[in-house]
């Protein structure tokens, strides 16, 4: 019975996100919080539902606008219910997110929303050129760098960034994403990234894996 209630709640929440119904999503959250915590909501519902929506986009079942709106709504909802962000949001490992060269920031925005909804603090460098990015990552001692691109030419520039950051004081794990990597599944290895994410929740899972690896160091 409890499982069936849970499935209903998830389904209600997912449908609210897919139809960009902020009020319905908020109501689903309120009902959930009657007997669970915010972190349980994140783990048991938000990540799972966003995963399903991201996978659905990959399979052609959902649209990018739905992925974007879902991430935004989750981020906004959690902003409202997290009483003390410094306590509940993880600021370790140090994560930064950047849009390289291009001016098309949607993919980065979605990843930002999902990582925030997943409980991470991260630095958003916005749109940057390669040299500026390398400088900032070194200065901030970033441990996980997420790079979003739209154009192939930008993707190819990542190879130089990887090379430059190999001399950083600390190991920087570089995670890449964006259209060129989705269309050419070998490109991330060609640019020598550590990992590639095809959806925003891929990025979240990769960060969690890397976090585990780092904590074992």
């Amino acid at each position: 019975m409890a499982d069936s209630n849970m499935a209903d709640r998830e389904s209600t929440f997912k449908n609210a996100l897919l139809s960009s119904d902020t009020d319905a999503a908020g109501k689903a959250l309120d009902e959930y919080l009657a007997d669970k915590t915010v972190l349980e909501f994140v783990e048991e519902v938000v990540v799972k539902v966003l995963d399903e929506i991201g996978d659905g986009w990959q399979k052609g079942e959902y649209a990018l606008s739905q992925v974007y709106m879902s991430g935004r709504i989750c981020e906004d909802l959690l902003e409202k219910v997290l009483p003390d962000k410094t306590v509940l949001r993880k600021d370790k490992p140090k994560i930064a997110l950047a849009l390289l060269n291009d001016y098309h920031a949607l993919g980065k925005r979605i990843v930002y929303a999902v990582l925030r909804a997943g409980g991470y603090q991260l630095i958003d460098y916005g749109r940057v050129e390669s040299e500026e990015l390398v400088r900032k990552v070194k200065e901030d001692k970033i441990e996980i760098l997420l790079i979003s691109v739209l154009m192939l030419s930008s993707a190819l520039n990542i190879k130089e960034i990887v090379k430059s950051l190999s001399h950083a004081e600390n190991k920087v794990n570089i995670v890449v994403g964006g259209a060129p990597f989705r269309l050419d599944r070998k490109l991330w290895q060609e640019v020598r990234a550590d990992a590639v994410g095809y959806t925003a929740t891929d990025a979240l899972h990769i960060v969690r894996t890397l976090e585990g690896d780092n904590s074992n160091d």
Binding site: N101, D102, Y103, L150, M151, L152, S153, S154, L156
Partner: peptide
């Protein structure tokens, strides 16, 4: 418009 040596020109800041 932003030009690149190794790719198509792209639009700049909206």
């Amino acid at each position: 418009v932003v030009f690149y040596d190794n790719g198509p020109a792209n639009s700049g800041e909206p």
